[in-house]
Design a protein around this nucleic acid. Structure first.
Lengths: 235, 235
DNA sequence: TAGTGGTCTAGACCACAAT
DNA sequence: TTGTGGTCTAGACCACTAT
């Protein structure tokens, strides 16, 4: 078998969408009609259609049929890793400090906690070619079992710390990249001028109900950071 | 039917992976064995397994079986739109200039073209709340049929311009975010201090063979840009 | 040779849409 | 009532892997 039948059918339908024979929200022929048209069984047609649904070119409505989707190609898939985004060859992360604090006003807001809740703070310094280029700070509401011993923390990722409380599949993350002139503490740590902005990468870790269970900020020297991604076809 | 059988089976296998009963690269029971275990047909088992393959928890090797995958949760999906990333409420894009030039040394490198090839340059200014906050410049090697009339260009996206030459499904994009102190031309346009870095979002549009067919750079005022994304489970 | 996943057929019943 | 997609069964043949 050179090319599976279901791929040939998927290609055929994809072309009809691509070349504009079908436009947004146009109904497709029914599965049964496509079975006759291509002389295949329903399962084969469904396999073809499922590929196009995965590609976000089609959606189906039970009892009605399949419809074409509007295309938006403005989604990028980014590989985001604290060390990967740093420019340089010798990169390493060093645990700086672990402490337990009472939440500031911002943390009360960001983590939706009460003022008397204790917060675990984990600070890292990130080095590139021997220089400090970034400072990372993570906040997690205290819970029994959370690792607070430095040795334990140094080798696990932010989601892993939190996953010790819940299943790793029940959390998702949001990220935001922006720039600001940082507070003095960061200016000193990164050894930059008081007028230089830094790149801030803000991470929110959320549970299934989208309630925050962790919050982190990475401050990075503006010359030492580069974030890369590739496009995906999306809704 | 409250919950389809294939979802119940997928959940069951997912739990075994999540809770560490199966670790990376462990072989799974064969489809046939799973059919017996859950008393369902092969198609139902395959549907369950295909979900887990889509979730990047499993991979299959023809003739051998299914195996569990190492999890990496460091991929983010970003919605990237030139106007969406600007901070502000009233945002608009204005075509500034279209011209045809001979390529500079950088363009010869970025677009892999010969020095005598003509390049179409499209410049936009991006406004937020009435202020110029970003400057966008796109380079596309000239080809017959490329829109160079201002009216035509103003309302189509970068990939769409290029897709007029090839199918939109044959192109993919790479993006990189970094910061730099920009050249004087940009300093003047954005009306910033000569010491302020800007956010540079670099876009490469590539064809099926990963050869460049378009190159663009967006220079954005560092205070006026914020890029957001959500995590996905990846390989 | 036996076992595996990949592909495919020809049916079936269900819940839901449109009429 | 008819047509639709969603789910599911019980087979089949193929290419590939391991022995």
């Amino acid at each position: 078998m050179a090319e599976p039948v279901y791929l040939r059918i998927a290609d055929d339908i994809r072309k009809q969408i691509t070349y504009g024979l079908l436009s947004a929200n146009d109904p497709l022929s029914s599965e049964k009609e496509l079975c006759s048209k291509y002389s295949v069984s329903r399962m084969t047609v469904r396999k073809s259609l499922s590929i196009l649904v995965d590609e976000n070119l089609l959606y189906s409505v039970p009892g009605k049929g399949y419809f074409t989707k509007k295309i938006n190609r403005d989604k990028y898939l980014f590989l985001f890793d604290e060390l990967d985004i740093l420019i340089g060859s010798n990169k390493e992360s060093q645990l700086m400090e672990v402490e337990i604090i009472k939440p500031t006003a911002e943390l009360i807001y960001q983590l939706r906690v009460s003022p008397d809740k204790r917060i675990v703070v984990i600070k890292h310094l990130l080095y590139s070619d021997g220089e400090i280029v970034a400072y990372d700070i993570k906040y997690i509401p205290y819970f029994t079992g959370i690792p607070i011993v430095e040795k334990e923390i140094n080798y696990i990722t932010f989601p892993e710390i939190i996953a010790s409380r819940t299943s790793i599949f029940d959390v998702h993350r949001k990220i935001a990249i922006s720039m600001e002139i940082p507070p003095d503490e960061i200016i000193n740590l990164l050894n930059i001028s008081s007028l230089d902005p830094v790149i801030i990468i803000q991470q929110h870790i959320l549970d299934q109900e989208s309630l925050p269970i962790g919050f982190g900020q990475l401050y990075c020297h503006y010359k030492k950071c580069r974030i890369e991604g590739v496009s995906v076809i999306g809704e």
